[in-house]
């Protein structure tokens, strides 16, 4: 564990708390222009469920296990809230990204490009590929509505920072322990790349007090 990875994981936690806070505060997932994509949240729940199949078999540390349990539980809780508790305020007409294609693409790629052709490894690889593109329905929704509530942008910023710090962590680990993981690196670079446009607008507008609005 190094500082970059620790802060990255904490930013990931922060992003989930921001999302839960927003949902509880507005009692809905669809404020006037602050919509949260159900598809993205469902994809994240799928990511955690398929990645942490080693939860009981492979004990790394109390930290590792606690985080895994938290990510699985919180993602399922968010999906539950959106599907049942706040269903009426969730507008599927804006959540139109074709998620089945990225799920299919990630599954196909996981079957072809993996470290070992075992059920657990293919599921793990699938989760890595799927996480890389899981934010797309949310970004697509943002593009469609053209603007976002500040708290939604903070959520995306926390998520993007978590991904960016993982890149730094990999460089650090490469130099300090000769850690190499091409599947995770390439998927992670793609995932972080998806946030570039968002980061640009976040820094140039939201942090200067302006509303998040697409040009």
């Amino acid at each position: 564990m190094n500082l970059f990875r620790l802060v990255a994981d904490l930013m990931h936690l922060v992003s989930i708390f921001i999302l839960l806070l927003k949902m509880q505060k507005t009692r809905s997932v669809a404020g006037r222009c602050s919509r949260i994509s159900f598809k993205t949240q469902a994809l994240y729940a799928t990511v955690f469920l398929t990645r942490y199949t080693d939860l009981f078999a492979n004990f790394q540390s109390l930290y590792n296990t606690t985080m895994k349990v938290f990510f699985i539980a919180s993602s399922l809780y968010i999906v539950f809230l959106m599907k049942f508790k706040f269903k009426a305020t969730n507008d599927p007409r804006l959540d139109t990204f074709k998620a089945q294609y990225v799920v299919g693409g990630a599954a196909a790629l996981a079957l072809i490009v993996n470290y070992a052709f075992t059920v657990q490894e293919v599921l793990w690889t699938f989760s890595i590929y799927l996480e890389a593109v899981a934010i797309l329905p949310q970004l697509f929704m943002l593009t469609k509505t053209g603007e976002a509530e500040v708290i939604t942008t903070h959520y995306l910023f926390a998520l993007g920072t978590y991904r960016g710090l993982y890149l730094v962590n990999w460089i650090y680990r490469y130099w300090t322990e000769y850690y190499v993981d091409w599947i995770v690196w390439i998927a992670g670079a793609v995932q972080t790349g998806l946030y570039c446009d968002f980061f640009y607008i976040y820094f140039t507008k939201v942090l200067k007090g302006a509303k998040f609005e697409l040009p």
């Binding site: 990875r5 994981d9 990931h12 080693d54 078999a57 492979n58 790394q60 590792n64 985080m67 895994k68 990510f71 470290y115 070992a116 075992t118 657990q120 490894e121 793990w124 993982y166 993981d181 995770v184």
Partner: peptide, 10 residues
Amino acid sequence: ESAEAKHDEL
């Protein structure tokens, strides 16, 4: 080292 063992990141 098995492939499973090296997945130490979240």
